[in-house]
Nucleic acid binder design. Sequence first.
DNA 1: TGTAAAATCATCCGAAAGGATGACGACATC
DNA 2: GATGTCGTCATCCTTTCGGATGATTTTACA
Lengths: 156, 156
Amino acid sequence: MKRHVLIFGLVGGLLIATLQYTEYRFVIIEHSVELYSALVAILFATFGIWLGLRITRSRETIRETVVVREVLVPAEAPALEPFAPNTAHQQTLGITARELEILTLIARGFSNREIATQLFVSENTVKTHCARAFDKLGAARRTQAVQRGKELGLLP
Amino acid sequence: MKRHVLIFGLVGGLLIATLQYTEYRFVIIEHSVELYSALVAILFATFGIWLGLRITRSRETIRETVVVREVLVPAEAPALEPFAPNTAHQQTLGITARELEILTLIARGFSNREIATQLFVSENTVKTHCARAFDKLGAARRTQAVQRGKELGLLP
DNA sequence: TGTAAAATCATCCGAAAGGATGACGACATC
DNA sequence: GATGTCGTCATCCTTTCGGATGATTTTACA
């Protein structure tokens, strides 16, 4: 904690030094004194805020060690339901069955190559389906496509 | 954190230096001081905002983990909204809070670059966190990591 | 005060993914 | 027979990811 005060003083001194050094030039430009003082004020204000945040931080971390260690069993075992994809959204978006099939495989974490192997098609085909599905979902990445798919109830 | 102070001082000094250097030109262009002051103000404002976000970030993440653990205490009632990640699995796998944070952003479909922007860190850092999280989860791809994370109750 | 864990950042390199585009055959429908 | 959709496959090119590795800084804790 001592270090912060030291840094504070150091920066302050440095600013004051530069202030003294550049003072004369600023006098030449009339009315720039107010500007300059405002700048310094802003500078010190932000720095002060920073310092305040910095100091108040270490106090809250102590609380963390107190609370920990409890629990288990979030109970996350949904029944084996066959999952019915939302065909309404699927059709309005124009997503074909094949594209949805590939989307589910993407959601399970398979790569394009693995998907191609599983479906007995070429990797290029998978990529084409991907591109079309992404376009229809408005997704730029497969993770985004998965997220959108789950939002729309297309994926389990 | 020392680096921030250094950057702070550096930017300040640089600005003052350029101020000195360009002073005469601004004298020639009469009364452009207002424009100049506005520019400097904007600069420092953005810098201050950046600094503030940068500083408060780590504190918020810490506070978040505290809240999460407090939520976990009533284990019998599976509350719907605030989603409590399974800390048991998280700790046995050695997944840190930061890694989990990045995992959730991955699950939401963000790219590494987007995540880096949101968290105010470099893309390289995000990639490092990714690599470690993937390793701990036994995942080779981000989609796979998301799938594993959901299986383990780490992600909503 | 020293240490260990965590977080940060970087570089190199190869693999994977994505965009754009064209093409071809099967099949259904009008 | 013309048209349209779907599935298939390809090439070229760019971007993104991921692995490996090393380094520094910050934080927590003993």
